[in-house]
Write a protein that binds this DNA or RNA. Structure first.
Length: 772
DNA sequence: GCAAGGTC
């Protein structure tokens, strides 16, 4: 802070307009002047603030989440531009997506006017990374701007003031961890998605020709949960069990069933023996009658995950739809920020006016009034806080909504009022009895005060009347029966179950659970049953089983465990970004290469659901194998790769753009084998031109020359250049190939006119009589 | 036409 004296104007940037507005309001005591930026959604709030004894002008504005996105450099963005394995090494760059350019312009304009920049993004990993995006943009136009980080636990006067008094530096380690995650997600996601999609569309053209078959580190484990539950149900073997049931009907109106303390037995004889003992002396002795208070707890303040789960369960509105509606209600000012992990109200949030707003409603108004008249709101506290947003609650009364908007708003209001209310109170009576040394039990419930249940119809609690029993008395049960039953399989997952599993295993964030679920639905990996449970589809089953059969835990939640652990180490500065990135790129690349090698297992797994795999031609087979590039085609700039005709014993270098681009290099028939060497020619351009390894026929080379050697066909080697037809652009010229083909001296030309299967002239592969 | 993470 050496140069603090020179600071006259400070640019502050929050993660979203909402936060900027809130922070500005606190810092300025509500006196901030609002003006427009280039982006309509991100306003600028201007005010004077006393920063460590200096009066400084503050400009508080915002981004909308990440300002920059990561993408492959242009040539790699095209699906057919390269073998997907190259995406593990292809260059990536950060750029500003179109819809954020206006935000960036505002930052640039304001930064030029300011001497200091204070980062006010959310105090989590993504926030730190967004902070550096802002810093990079501002420093690009004003290199000497002083940069500070404000750290706050919540947007409240105390927390904001404290942040201002103890400005720190941004933490590059935390930001680096996000960079690592972003880059891996992009490389792995794009590589596997292209590989799966391109291969399976060709192999199952009837069912998948227009289907995008994506892979992602969140969507696949989510799919895995659905498949795993389905398989558990399939593998379930019901077991027969036996139990003793005791019924007592002291009068016509009264009936009570006593349940066996042993619950159930799987051994028929054992149960029968106990049953017969009961039947020999079928008199019940009341051992104890215990009466005790029982309460049903009011709900906890609402966080995003609970909102999604409850809306799905109670209102049958999907998580995706719920969040869409919640966003809308939020932007119209009816509810608080809907993406929160907090389930405890901050002490400084005054709940009384929020309850008061609701007293005007015809349905729940009297209940809200009741809260105010009986001690005011007293919510329970949960144990989670994201230190930025309070639990979801209504912020404005309305009765003008329709449909699901109305239902969701009503739910949020009722949930809020229930939180502010009291637990339901009741009295439970537990009666324990003994018949021939076997113990049975029954319970009754009397509800004394429904309290929160009056406003919260989503929870059920019923009275259960049982007759009055006195300890140490006996009675004759109306019936003692030995029952037989069967264990039942687990049920398919509901959306609420799925969200719970994702949360438990750290798949996605509270803001993204709904999206990942939506993705696996839209990809046709899973479907919903009539009662809204998740059923894996053929594609989903095949994919999970295919990768499982390769031995990879692609659909298991713990594949990323090591990565998550490393990300933590990066954020703590204990491991370095580049080495962690290198390690995991290499690890996933190895998995990818093996997956391609074992791709037939994927086909096999899917063919048991999608029917027979398409028989493909030799050329298609080669395309599926995705050979590695030897060099760029000089005509169309796509990769040139080696293609082999096994039956025909010849190989050639062909452009990936075939048939649109016919550039090719044919080798003389003295060449037995050609393969791509890892070495790269130091002279030929465009870089890189891979060297090729040749094997020659015995006797085809002058005596003393090695029959195997590595050479370059890029033009630098005179002998090999001849194969390109002595043309300067030879390697990639279509004329080179056609002139070779038409030359009677070229042995390759002759072979081209013979059949690829039987090597006889006069017909082609497709018309070959030997073809099955 | 690819991911996941922010957010209008």
């Amino acid at each position: 802070m050496r140069a603090r004296a020179q600071i006259k104007k400070v640019l502050c940037v929050a993660e979203k307009n909402d936060a900027a507005k809130g922070i500005a309001e606190i810092m300025s005591n509500g006196r901030a002047k609002r003006r427009e930026g280039f982006s309509v959604y991100n306003k600028i709030y201007e005010y004077e603030y006393d920063l460590l004894g200096q009066n400084v002008t503050f400009c508080m504005t915002s981004v909308s989440g990440h300002l920059l996105a990561l993408e492959f450099k242009a040539p790699f963005q095209k699906w057919h531009s390269c073998n997907p394995v190259l995406l593990f090494d292809a260059e990536v760059e950060k750029y500003c997506p179109e819809n954020f350019v206006q935000i960036k312009r505002t930052l640039e304009r304001e930064a030029r006017q300011c001497q200091a920049l204070v980062i006010w993004t959310d105090c989590d990993r993504e926030g730190e990374n967004i902070g550096y995006e802002i810093i990079d943009v501002c420093k690009a136009v004003k290199a000497n701007i002083q940069v500070f980080r404000a750290r706050f636990s919540e947007i409240t006067p105390n927390s904001i003031r404290r942040a201002c008094e103890s400005l720190t530096e941004p933490d590059i380690n935390v930001s680096d961890a996000v960079d690592v995650r972003q880059e891996l997600d992009l490389r792995i996601g794009a590589a596997f998605t292209r590989f799966q999609t391109l291969r399976l569309q060709k192999i199952f053209p009837d069912s998948l020709s227009n289907q995008l078959i994506s892979y992602g580190s969140c969507q696949f484990p989510t799919l895995g949960f659905v498949v795993e539950r389905f398989k558990a149900i399939q593998a379930f073997i019901p077991e027969t069990f036996f139990k003793i049931k005791v019924v007592h009907e002291p009068s016509e109106e009264e009936s009570v069933e006593f349940s066996w303390k042993r619950h159930r037995l799987f051994n028929h004889t054992a149960c029968l023996v106990l049953y017969q003992m009961c039947m020999e002396d079928p008199v019940a002795t009341v051992i104890s009658v215990i009466s005790k208070p029982k309460s049903k707890w009011r709900p906890l303040p609402l966080d995003t995950v609970e909102l999604e789960k409850l809306a799905s369960r109670k209102l049958k509105i999907s998580a995706k739809e719920t969040m869409k509606i919640a966003e809308k209600l939020y932007t119209r000012g009816f509810i608080s920020y809907p993406r929160t992990e907090t389930n405890m109200f901050p002490t400084n949030l005054n709940l009384v006016p929020l309850v008061e707003q609701q007293t005007q409603d015809n349905e729940w108004g009297p209940f809200a009034q009741g809260i105010l008249e009986s001690g005011g709101p007293t919510p329970r506290n949960g144990n989670k806080s994201d230190q930025a947003h309070p639990p979801i609650h209504p912020t404005k009364y309305t009765n003008s909504l329709q449909g699901n908007e109305k239902r969701l708003y009503e739910f949020i209001v009722r949930h809020f009022l229930a939180c502010c209310s009291k637990d339901a109170e009741g009295k439970e009576v537990i009666v324990d009895i003994d018949i021939a040394q076997e113990k049975f039990s029954a319970s009754g419930l009397t509800i004394i005060a429904r309290n929160y249940l009056e406003v919260y119809p989503y929870d059920k609690w019923y009275n259960k009347v049982i007759p009055l029993y006195m300890p140490n008395t006996t009675f004759q049960p109306t019936a003692i029966e030995m029952m037989e039953g069967q264990t039942s399989p687990p049920q398919l997952l509901t959306e609420a179950d799925l969200i719970s599993l994702m949360e438990k295993h750290g798949i996605g964030t509270d803001a993204t659970h709904a999206e990942h679920i939506e993705t696996i639905k839209s990809r046709m990996y899973v479907g919903l049953t009539a009662d809204q449970r998740f059923l894996p589809g053929e594609l989903g089953m095949g994919l999970v089983e295919g990768y499982n059969s390769m031995g990879y835990e692609m659909s298991k939640p713990d594949l990323r465990a090591e990565l998550e652990a490393d990300l933590k180490l990066v954020s703590e500065g204990r491991k370095d970004k580049a080495s962690v990135l290198r390690h995991h790129v290499a690890k996933y690349k190895a998995v990818f290469i093996e997956s391609v090698r074992k791709a037939k297992k994927l086909d096999e797994a899917l063919s048991s659901y999608l029917g027979q795999a398409q028989e493909y031609t030799e050329q298609e087979e080669q395309e599926l194998e995705m050979p590695l590039p030897v060099r760029k085609c000089l005509q169309c700039n796509l990769d040139m790769v080696l293609k082999k005709r096994k039956e025909a014993f010849y190989e050639f270098l062909s452009c990936m753009g075939y048939p649109a681009c016919k550039a090719a290099v044919w080798f003389p028939d003295t060449v037995l084998e050609v393969s791509r060497d890892d070495s790269i020619c130091p002279t030929c351009r465009p870089h890189p031109v891979h060297m090729l390894k040749f094997k020659f026929k015995r006797g085809s080379l002058p005596p003393g020359m090695d029959l195997e050697f590595v050479g370059c066909i890029g033009g630098c080697d005179e002998t090999l250049r001849e194969w390109n037809g002595n043309r300067k652009t030879g390697a990639s010229s279509s004329k080179a190939s056609s002139s070779k083909a038409s030359s009677s001296k070229a042995p390759t030309a002759k072979r081209q006119r013979t059949c690829g299967i039987c090597h006889e002239p006069g017909h082609t592969r497709t018309t070959c009589p030997q073809r099955q």
